[in-house]
């Protein structure tokens, strides 16, 4: 069962890497969104898959009955989802603002921080 998901994770990574390698900010953003889901699925699958039984202790018992889904990756992913969303939103606004200020959405034309013809640093004390 995990094998199929391993391949799905691979597809997620390949697609997001391909998008990240683009020079257009918008595709970069799409790539980041896919990467987040790919990583979450990677963690989820690595913790092994169990069908339908959530890690909840039933009323009247002290420990879960029988086999349940692995709670640890779930806890890790839950926070990761929210954080990757916040970051995605931040990147989105950053890209949008950069587009507004610089008038381009091509990354190789965004050279304010590292200009092409940057002069050599001063020699001296």
């Amino acid at each position: 069962m995990e094998g199929v998901f391993a391949i799905l994770v691979g597809v997620y990574f390949a697609a997001s890497i391909f998008l990240l390698l683009s020079r257009h900010v918008i595709r970069l953003l799409l790539g980041v969104a896919l990467l987040g889901n790919g990583v979450n699925l990677l963690i989820f699958t690595a913790g092994r898959l169990t069908r339908e039984v959530p890690p909840i202790i039933p009323e009247g018992l002290a420990v879960p009955e029988g086999v349940t889904a692995n709670p640890l990756p779930q806890a890790l992913i839950l926070t990761a989802i929210v954080i990757s969303f916040s970051f995605f939103a931040f990147l989105l606004v950053l890209a949008y603002r950069a587009y507004q200020e610089l008038g381009t959405d091509e990354t190789d034309k965004m050279r304010v921080a590292e200009p092409v013809d940057e002069p050599a640093p001063p020699v001296g004390y």
């Binding site: 094998g3 597809v11 697609a15 690595a46």
Partner: peptide, 14 residues
């Protein structure tokens, strides 16, 4: 590059 990366992660997980 993308396929190599994807194959790498899939193989790692597998």
């Amino acid at each position: 590059i993308a396929v190599a990366g994807g194959v790498g992660f899939a193989g790692l997980l597998l």
